[in-house]
Design a protein around this nucleic acid. Structure first.
Lengths: 118, 118
DNA sequence: CATAGTGTACTATGTGACTAGTACACTATG
DNA sequence: CATAGTGTACTAGTCACATAGTACACTATG
């Protein structure tokens, strides 16, 4: 596979985003088992430790549970996923607004641009 | 002064953003002279070399012109500034949309959140 | 012409984030 | 109990960033 990653953001972070996205999109279901760290490392073309960091991060966010010798699984706590969804939305929006502010744009101005974009 | 900087982004980059913002906000006018590298370094509490990188970056973006022995000035090319404004807006929007996509949100969904935020 | 104030260039150093390689610990399975 | 497949811990190397110090080139000013 050997995914292509953006260079302005750590690989592990992009993978976390991707997995979160897959969960939110329903491509990964509650209780699903993720690929093993080695397997996923080969799939994405990165190092095992990078994948481990991804899984570690996900577990710290309480959206996965890992069992030694068995694997890493998406939490079955649906409430947690819903919360995650809200959190990410809010954080995304907040970061966006911060950037807007720093560069001197108004929210209304940006909303117009967004509407007209693909 | 000793500004406080976010840790998730290089200082020099944040300073570039800040200056661009000041220009777009009209706090810095066309033809205005920026503080000297040494002066600005003291103001912001960073190293001279960091400021130089900021000024270098700004010049590479064609939004400042530097004259040896005199200082660094905002370009008088109004068209360039307008272009800058459009570029930054578009890039900001594009990045936002990319993040949205990666995390599995829809544009419409996010627009609602943005509208309801401060 | 001397001086002080500009930007610029260069080398060196320290630090932290990121990634990689390797070895270890645990668990299921036969 | 042996083996293969899990996650995990540790060490090391690379790179960007920020800093520090020094020296140089140019310009205005007196």
């Amino acid at each position: 596979m050997t995914m292509d990653f953006s260079r302005d953001k750590p690989i592990y972070s992009q993978l976390v985003d991707r997995i979160c996205g897959d969960i939110l999109r329903g491509k990964l279901l509650l209780g699903d088992r993720l690929p093993s760290v080695r397997e996923y490392a080969v799939e994405t073309g990165v190092n095992v430790n990078t994948v481990q960091r991804v899984y570690k991060e996900l577990e710290a966010m309480n959206i996965t549970e890992t069992k030694r010798g068995q694997g890493t699984f998406i939490t079955t706590n649906e409430e947690r996923i819903e919360l995650l969804r809200e959190d990410m939305k809010n954080q995304l929006a907040a970061n966006f607004l911060t950037s807007i502010e720093a560069l001197g744009f108004s929210k209304e101005e940006m909303l117009v641009v967004l509407k007209n974009k693909a």
